[in-house]
Amino acid sequence: MRYRLVILTFCLVFGLLALFRLDHANHSRETFGTTILKQGSSGKDIYELQGRLKHLGYFNGKVDGQFGSSTLNAVKWFQWKFGMKADGVVGPKTKLKLWKATKDWKPTAAELPPGTAGGAAGGKAGAGGTERAQSLPASNNNGFTDKDLKMMANAVYGESRGEPYEGQVAVAAVILNRVRDAEFPNTPTGVIFQPGAFTAVSDGQIWLTPNANALKAVKDALSGWDPTDGCLYYFNPETATSKWIWSRPQYKTIGKHIFCR
């Protein structure tokens, strides 16, 4: 009798767990549909993907329904933070994780596809659906959010707090140079968290509290000071293990860092 009760209890618990998982999976399917989303995809599912990522702070671009480089970076960042393979492909597992993390999300009018009630009129964000702004907006913060500026200061501090001040400004300038370059994400946060881009992200030093020098270095770089004259890369020759970075054209050395084109 006790054995049957144990079996019955086990079956009941297993059945409830299966129903719970099925219900969550159904919700995510209703939200996104069953199509695998990846770079180059477009449509209403991408509007929702971008809106939910923006709600969590991973996506800073325009919600335009085009899965471009900024959306790819946001997806990879979300996947990495939630312990998934950061491949930028939005399959069932990523959809379910994102749905669970954004149950309270409701789209604004600007996040709805064109033609939807309350949705903004218009189409793609330029030729080929690119999400990139071609130049930095002219304002005190260059159009960046407070979060972007904070992450830049964190990156400067995590990457170069032992460097001369010019070298700290140089690190901030490299981040901005990447933002301007079409090969990189178009926000400082996107650049900083691009997989494998910065050692401070890999070793966790990105989360250290920056000092006044790091904050000032960011402001000086935003004001137009670029000690690197447009460099996109830098490395410490004493610690660099990548053969690729040594192949980049070296432009100048500041402190312990070599800055490259």
Rank of each mutant, 00 (worst) to 15 (best):
L215A: 01
W244C: 01
Q250C: 10
N141T: 15
K38L: 09
F82Q: 14
G122E: 11
G65A: 12
D64K: 08
G224K: 03
Q39M: 15
N211G: 08
F259L: 03
L53T: 07
R29G: 00
G123N: 10
K243E: 12
A121R: 09
H55D: 05
E111I: 06
F67P: 03
E131P: 05
A18K: 01
T239F: 11
R178Q: 12
W244D: 11
Y47C: 05
P227I: 13
Y157M: 04
G190N: 04
A214H: 05
V201Q: 07
A240V: 15
C260N: 03
M84C: 02
A109K: 11
G40I: 15
D181V: 12
K103G: 02
R161V: 15
F144M: 05
Q50C: 11
S70P: 03
S69G: 12
K103V: 10
V191R: 01
M84I: 11
A121M: 10
K243H: 04
A172V: 09
A155H: 05
V169A: 01
A138P: 01
W246S: 09
G43V: 14
L53M: 10
D226I: 14
G190F: 05
A110D: 10
N177D: 09
S42I: 12
G33T: 07
H24R: 10
T108L: 13
K147F: 09
N26V: 10
T102K: 00
W207N: 14
D146Q: 15
N154K: 10
K62E: 14
E159I: 10
K252M: 14
T130R: 04
M151V: 15
P249R: 02
V218S: 02
V75L: 01
V63H: 00
G190P: 06
E166F: 07
Y165D: 09
D226H: 07
T102A: 01
P227C: 12
E30H: 08
I7K: 05
G115Q: 07
Y157H: 13
N211F: 04
L208N: 09
A25N: 07
M1F: 09
R161P: 06
G190V: 09
S242C: 07
K44V: 13
A170L: 09
P210C: 07
R180N: 08
S242I: 12
K93A: 15
G68S: 13
L208H: 03
I258K: 01
T94E: 00
K44A: 14
